[in-house]
């Protein structure tokens, strides 16, 4: 009696678990394992079938100058976008959290870049950056400044993409900060004000620490986003010129679908996943200990 009832309990448990498990295994876990296995095989072709090469793909990756360039680009991209967009997001959230006329319009305006499709955003900025006829060059022309091919110059292409990404991300992160700010009781500011705390002191000692849970969440998202960027590059630069704006995920896409080297793409994917996992865990464990959750 008890044995069969125990058994039924397990069966029920597994039955409830199965639908979600099937989806997770089929679309997340199996592809991850398959990618890992693929990365140990050579590129196959009609005459030379794919064979096991161990860490061979990793060796050639280490020797691949484009891989290193893309990785360094990605690092600059992350360093260029994340701190600025977080700082902007906090300032914008603090601005629209005050009572000022047109507040809801301002909130909406800040959030607009986020709801636009990425391809549309990239097209808008493609116009901004166009040499001579683009918005930036036209405005620069009024001041007598010469035109510049922003996306065609290896020195300016990555900063140009960074500016656009900040424009897109800051409004999105602002929403999270705004929600967090609205949960901070106004008496805290008043209590600090009575003690003579300046706005900056209050921000540094009270507001920012209380926003830390949000900052951690936003930071992890921002890091993931900076390694996930593909669509803008696709429209704007295709990673060029000379890989000056190429980022890791776009390079994976190129390897797999332009050069048809899926095994090398698998290798790069494993590296990308490992990088993201390490960074997310590091942020989580290092910062989490210093964060106060209410």
């Amino acid at each position: 009696m008890t044995v069969s009832r125990d058994l039924m309990r397990h069966v029920h448990g597994w039955l409830l678990l199965t639908p979600a498990a099937i989806l997770l295994i089929a679309f997340t876990h199996y592809p991850m394992v398959a990618t890992l296995i693929d990365s140990f095989y050579s590129k196959g072709s009609a005459i030379r079938p794919s064979r096991f090469v161990g860490l061979g793909n990793y060796d050639s990756m280490m020797a691949d100058p484009i891989f290193w360039k893309v990785l360094v680009n990605n690092m600059w991209f992350a360093l260029g976008t994340i701190p600025v967009s977080i700082a902007l997001a906090i300032s914008m959230a603090m601005l629209v959290n005050q009572t000022l006329p047109g507040r809801s319009f301002l909130r909406m305006a800040y959030f607009t870049p986020t709801i636009l499709p990425m391809i549309a955003v990239a097209n808008i900025w493609l116009f901004f950056y166009s040499p001579y006829i683009g918005l930036i060059d036209q405005i620069a022309g009024w001041f007598g400044l010469p035109g510049h091919n922003w996306l065609g110059d290896p020195d300016t292409v990555l900063p140009a993409i960074i500016v656009m990404t900040i424009w897109k991300e800051a409004g999105f992160f602002m929403i999270f900060y705004l929600a967090a700010l609205q949960h901070i009781p106004p008496e805290l500011r008043e209590a600090a004000r009575l003690e003579g705390a300046t706005r900056w002191y209050f921000f540094r000692r009270v507001l920012f620490p209380l926003l830390m849970p949000t900052t951690l969440f936003v930071l992890i998202n921002a890091v993931l986003n900076s390694f996930k960027l593909v669509d803008h590059l696709f429209v704007l630069t295709k990673g060029g010129p000379d890989n000056a704006s190429n980022l890791l995920l776009y390079y994976i896409f190129e390897s797999a679908f332009s050069y048809f080297d899926t095994n090398y793409a698998a290798t790069l994917t494993v590296v990308l996943l490992a990088l993201l996992a390490v960074m997310a865990l590091a942020q989580f464990f290092v910062l989490d200990r210093r964060i106060h959750y209410r």
Binding site: R193, L194, H292
Partner: peptide
């Protein structure tokens, strides 16, 4: 300015800094 008035205040919610 509030800080220069020489007053202290206890709020209904106490306004303690939670962190």
């Amino acid at each position: 300015d509030a800080a220069q008035r020489g007053v202290s205040m206890v709020f209904q919610s106490y306004a303690l800094f939670p962190h």
